[in-house]
Structures are given as C-alpha cells and as structure tokens.
Amino acid sequence: MGLIVNALFPVFGVIFIGWLLRRSQLLPEDSWGPISRLAYLGLSPALLFTAIYRADLSSISVSGFMLAALLGFLAMAAITLAIKPLLRIPDPTYTSLFQATARWNGLLILAVAGSLFGEEGQVLVALIMAASIPLVNIECVAVLSIWGDGSRPDWRSILYRIATNPLILGTGAGAAANLSGLTLPVALDSTIGLIGQAALPLILLSVGAGLNFTAMKARPRLLGLSVLLKLMLAPLVFYGIGVAMGVQGPALTVLLLTGASPGAASAYVLARQMGGDAPYSAGDITASAMFCFLTIPFWLALLG
C-alpha cells in the first residue's frame, strides 16, 4: 500500500495544486484553456514519441494486450447501450452518459502508470491511447448522431481530425522510428525529450484547474450512476478481459487503470457540438475526477 501511495501522491498532489492555482486567481480565468490545449496537443505528442521511440517493444506482448484493451472499450459501450431502455432520461442526456462510460483520460493514466512502472508503464498507456482514440471517438459520434439533438456529423471531417490527432501522430511516429531502427541525433532526441517532460505537469495542473464542483449539481442521481459504471464496473471489465486473455504483470495493471480512469474533457466539447447534455458532461468530468482519487488506490490495492 505504501508503494501505491508514494506513486499516486505526486500525481494527485499536482492536480490539487492546479485547483488551488485556479482558486487563487494567480492566472486569469481564461488562461487555463490555452494552457490545457498546449499541454495536450502541443507537448504531449513529444512525450508519447519519446516513450515509444526509446522503448524495448520486443519485451511487450503487444497484440494480446491491445486486443484486451479494445475489447474492454467495446464491452463498456455494449453495457451502456444495453441499459438504455431502463433509463427514463432524454436522449441527449443519454449520449452524455454514454460518453461518460466510453471515454477515458489517457494522459492522466499515463502519469499514474509512469509513477508505478516508469517508462514501461508510459509505453503501455501510449499504445492503448493510439488504438482507442479512433474507436472511442467513432463510438461517441455515432451515438450522438442517433440520439443527439438532431444535428448530423460530418464524418469526413471527423475521420480527418482523428487521423491527424497529434496524440496518434506522436505515438505513430515513435513506433515507426523504433521499429525502423532509426537513431535520432542526440541533440534532437534530447530536445524532444525535454519538451515531453513539460507535458505531464501542465496536464495535471489543467485537470485540477478544470474541476468544477458547481457542475456536479446537474442530475446528481445520474452522475452517481455514470461514476459507478466508470469507476467501479469498468475496472472489473478491463481486468477480467485481461485475465481471460492471459495478460499479466504491469500490462494487466495498466488495463485495470484504463478502466479506472476518470472521464475526459473532450466529452463536454463534443456534447456542446453535437447536441448532448453539456452541463451533465461537465458534472461527470468533475465527479469522476474527484472520486478516482479514492477508487484508483482501492483497485490498485485490491487487484493491482
């Protein structure tokens, strides 16, 4: 348990500092959006590139591990679709519930896995991110196109944005460089690595700054359901699939963490764009981030 606390305390501590910084108004309120965008889209690709480029991929059973992760995402989508007839809620609100259970904050889990397992943990999370970003986005857009407020998606534009997602590009470039045996000049490698080192602190600060406890007043009972599905059921689903497929060691723990991840801010953005329940999405992002402080240590102590 001490190892878990030592690994998680810095991650959650930086998130708390981000919340304090926003409350202190040390920075203008509207500055946190650009900071978050810089961290996620500007710096994180360098972090993912470096993690994959420097990794010994031969030591990781990539195919079974990644298949288990994708099956986990598909299983959670199937479960959420199966319970729709039981929920007496407007269709746009259901789309936000679906996003709450389907999406995950991969970069936050990257920080947690890095604290636990070092570079190996970061590589494992980066691989899941590269595989899951297209799948999860297509799932969520499809659900919103059916049950949103009637707006229809531009699939060509959506697929283009997925294909040009900086996180996917960073991971893909790192994998290509690794598998091709390319050796970067030391100066270039060090520069990219230095840029990547700045990503996680800014990401965690942005997560803390984005906590909006007022938003949790929107549909509190439904928030309880989405948090229960995401933070209590999903870890068991991902872990169970991993065990069934023979995944072991740090890879199995990373699958557990993937299921235990809180929701992602992109759910709020897409809900606004395609007619979901944006206030509910905002509340879920905060609620899942807050309660994961308790559930992630719980699952790691129990199964990790």
Rank of each mutant, 00 (worst) to 15 (best):
I4N: 10
I4S: 05
N6L: 06
V11R: 10
V14Y: 01
V14C: 08
I15C: 10
G18M: 09
W19A: 13
R23E: 14
S24M: 06
Q25I: 07
L26K: 07
L27W: 03
E29A: 11
D30H: 13
S31H: 11
S36N: 15
S36A: 14
L38C: 02
G42D: 00
L48G: 01
A51W: 01
I52H: 00
Y53S: 01
Y53I: 07
R54N: 08
A55W: 02
A55F: 03
S61E: 02
S61F: 03
G64C: 15
L71Y: 13
A75D: 03
T80K: 06
L81R: 05
I83F: 05
K84W: 11
R88K: 14
D91C: 05
P92C: 11
T93S: 15
T93Y: 06
L97M: 14
F98D: 04
L107V: 08
L108M: 12
I109E: 09
A111K: 10
A111Q: 09
V112A: 15
A113K: 14
G114R: 06
G114Y: 04
L116M: 05
G118K: 15
V125H: 14
V125T: 11
M129K: 05
A131H: 08
S132P: 05
I133G: 07
V136A: 14
N137P: 13
I138Y: 15
E139G: 12
E139H: 05
G148K: 04
S151N: 12
D154C: 04
R156S: 13
S157W: 05
L159W: 10
I162F: 04
I162L: 14
T164I: 03
T164L: 08
L167S: 01
L167A: 02
T171I: 12
T171K: 10
A173E: 07
A173D: 09
A173F: 05
A175Y: 15
N178W: 09
L179Q: 11
S180G: 13
S180N: 14
G181I: 09
L184F: 01
V186Y: 08
V186A: 12
A187M: 11
D189S: 11
D189E: 10
D189F: 07
T191R: 08
I192F: 02
G193N: 03
I195A: 06
G196V: 11
P201A: 03
L202I: 11
I203F: 02
I203M: 13
V207W: 00
V207L: 12
G210S: 15
L211G: 10
F213P: 10
A215E: 06
M216G: 04
A218C: 09
P220T: 10
R221P: 15
L223K: 05
L225D: 03
L228N: 12
L228R: 06
L229W: 10
L229K: 13
L231H: 03
A234V: 11
L236H: 03
Y239P: 13
G240A: 12
P250G: 06
T253K: 09
L255F: 03
L256I: 08
L257W: 01
A260L: 01
P262D: 02
G263V: 05
G263H: 01
A265K: 15
A265W: 02
S266C: 13
A267C: 12
A278T: 00
S281I: 00
I285Y: 00
A287E: 00
L294S: 04
L294M: 14
P297V: 02
F298D: 00
W299M: 07
L300W: 01
A301C: 15
L302R: 10
L303I: 12
